[in-house]
Design a protein around this nucleic acid. Sequence first.
DNA 1: GTCTATACGTGGATAGAC
DNA 2: GTCTATCCACGTATAGAC
Lengths: 191, 191
Amino acid sequence: MPPALRPRSEVIELVMGVIRQHGYEGASISELSRATGLGKSSLYHHFPEGKDDMVRAVLEHLGEYLEQNLFTPLRGAGTPKRRLDLMMQGLDAFYRHGHESCALAQLVLSNTRARFSRPLTAIFTDWIDAIARVLVDAGLSKALAKQRAEDAVLRIEGALVLSGGLGDAGVFARTLQQLPALLLAPATSRR
Amino acid sequence: MPPALRPRSEVIELVMGVIRQHGYEGASISELSRATGLGKSSLYHHFPEGKDDMVRAVLEHLGEYLEQNLFTPLRGAGTPKRRLDLMMQGLDAFYRHGHESCALAQLVLSNTRARFSRPLTAIFTDWIDAIARVLVDAGLSKALAKQRAEDAVLRIEGALVLSGGLGDAGVFARTLQQLPALLLAPATSRR
DNA sequence: GTCTATACGTGGATAGAC
DNA sequence: GTCTATCCACGTATAGAC
């Protein structure tokens, strides 16, 4: 029994990288094998049901990653503004300044959505909730906080699409930069 | 020589439908053959270079479709508000109230982006320009108009992703509904 | 312009040795 | 837990008849 080449979490991250680039259908087992450095059989050892298992693992892992790296800091110390800025920094890194695409969007747009709708919805819901909580802390009503949090996620995903579409990562950068102030603006005179 | 089963434009629209659902990599020739009712050889007769040709045709066709059905009305008669409302109606129909996904987003997110970046960028640019012109007509500065037009497209694409992600088409509906007022709001106190 | 038949590669998946 | 070898299905693409 040779030792595992890489920890499972690392394999999952590499798989996610391939899916982000190629989407579900475009991510072939051969490519996943190459990217992870594991033979096909090894991949099937870790993910007996093949790509579906991999995607489930990716979504689970991504959920935990976001929870720890973005949502938890969002609940932490500091002013709401400061906490939102932290999330934007995290997103900027995760999406490589808008150059890396979003695995969630890939899965949502293709017809694989149905197969993974549960975990997908969970991640989006958690994300929105995490942002909304900061806005409530900042003094917004629950309803408005939720509305704006939804808008924030919507803008981030839209920015990733439009950045790619225009070939201008600046769209993503500006979106992240403007969001905190936009989210925290006083309730009147907006919307 | 049997007559063409369908006009070319109809074939292209059916091809686009498959790409919207499955993405570029997921759209197999067999499926495209089934969807269009044309044999594989017939497809290659119309699109000698295969899927790449089909995508180029789809983007060209889509560009014209948007021009005629959304951008031209945007330049037409009526108040800016009325013209924007018309575009939102068109989008609502085109995206089947948020249930149908966006071929552009599919192509942008996957690694096929590089191959079609020119026509993709052109479509997004034209779209933004068309909206910006209405906003200039409404009295906004050129700079602000362009900024907001960009934001509009960004929101529409984001809404399609988030609607799918949350399994709630209401997100898309609300986004379309709010956009005209948001775009036409007075220059002060926003952004 | 469309079809049937077919070639050939690649994709997903498994068997079995180590 | 990993590998090599292998299987079959499906994907892309072409040939050639009508």
